[in-house]
Amino acid sequence: MNMKQISEHVFQCEFELDVTVDIRIPVHIWLIRNGEDVYIIDTGIECFSDDLIKAVLSIGTPKAILLTHGHNDHIKGAAKLIEKFNIPIYAHQKELIYINGEAPYPKKNDLENTGVANVVEPLKEQTLAHLPIQYYLTPGHSPGHVVYYHEKDQILLSGDLFITSHEDLHPPIRKFSDINENIDSGAIIDKIKPTLICSSHGKNLPYDDRLYKKYVWNYRD
């Protein structure tokens, strides 16, 4: 794991996920420090948990887990963190039927075994009311996918809304996504205008007002 501070209050933990023998993809988990409190954005998979626990404790006291969505590479580490820290975990209401194993995600046949069925609480405005963080519903990759925006630091934690390179926005894996809905959700960046866009599986990308226009041109059907 590599942890780096990307703004005054936001830390990024980078892990690698072995997809095949020859292919590894980065997985980003973010820690938001608010005074002595730490909020964990996504959890990765279970084998990341020990290093993530150390990272969290190195900067403060864990208070909650906030999920962008419930796919395995974002939620499977949650059970171990909850056992260790005894903290609440939140996701958008629209994700809960999938997280709880009540229905398979769209375009998937199997139910999720998240390890935290019936534990995750619905994310509400009051959940973050005491923090300089906003969440926005951005469906497409999953029905209840959200992004988190740290207003003071102007950092957008975009989850799987995009895969980012050093220069451009790219869509997530098509086989699991409603790509046109996902691309429409991406318009949030022109509403927010963050300083930096941080995706779960890409490079940290400075915002400019040409990014989304180019993205739509390249990828929308």
Rank of each mutant, 00 (worst) to 15 (best):
L123F: 01
E167P: 02
H71Y: 13
Q134P: 03
K80C: 05
R174L: 14
Y98Q: 00
I99R: 11
I173C: 12
E83S: 14
P139C: 08
I87W: 01
D168T: 12
L169G: 07
K84A: 13
T127M: 00
H71S: 10
E151Y: 07
H150T: 15
V116L: 13
E102W: 05
N113Q: 11
K76H: 11
I97S: 15
I89Y: 05
V119S: 10
I99W: 10
D73F: 13
I163L: 09
D160M: 01
I97F: 03
L137M: 02
Q134H: 11
A103Q: 13
G115A: 04
L156R: 06
L169W: 05
A129C: 07
D110L: 15
A129Y: 07
P171D: 10
D110E: 13
H130F: 09
G115V: 13
A129L: 12
T164D: 04
E167F: 10
D160R: 06
Y148E: 01
E95M: 04
D73I: 13
A91L: 02
V120N: 01
H92F: 12
V146N: 05
S165Y: 03
L137G: 04
Y135M: 01
D160H: 11
D178N: 10
G77L: 00
T164K: 06
F176Y: 15
H166N: 06
L128R: 06
P106Y: 06
P139L: 03
R174C: 09
K152F: 08
F85Y: 07
D178C: 04
A91Y: 00
G101C: 05
G140R: 06
D153A: 06
E167S: 12
G159A: 03
L123W: 00
K76I: 09
N100I: 00
H170P: 07
N72V: 07
A103T: 12
L161S: 04
Y136E: 01
L128N: 09
Y90M: 03
I133W: 02
P143K: 04
T114V: 02
N118A: 05
A103G: 00
T164E: 03
I133R: 01
L157M: 15
G77P: 05
D160E: 08
E102F: 04
E167N: 13
A78W: 04
H166F: 08
A117M: 08
K94A: 15
K152W: 14
E112V: 09
D178T: 05
H130E: 14
E112T: 12
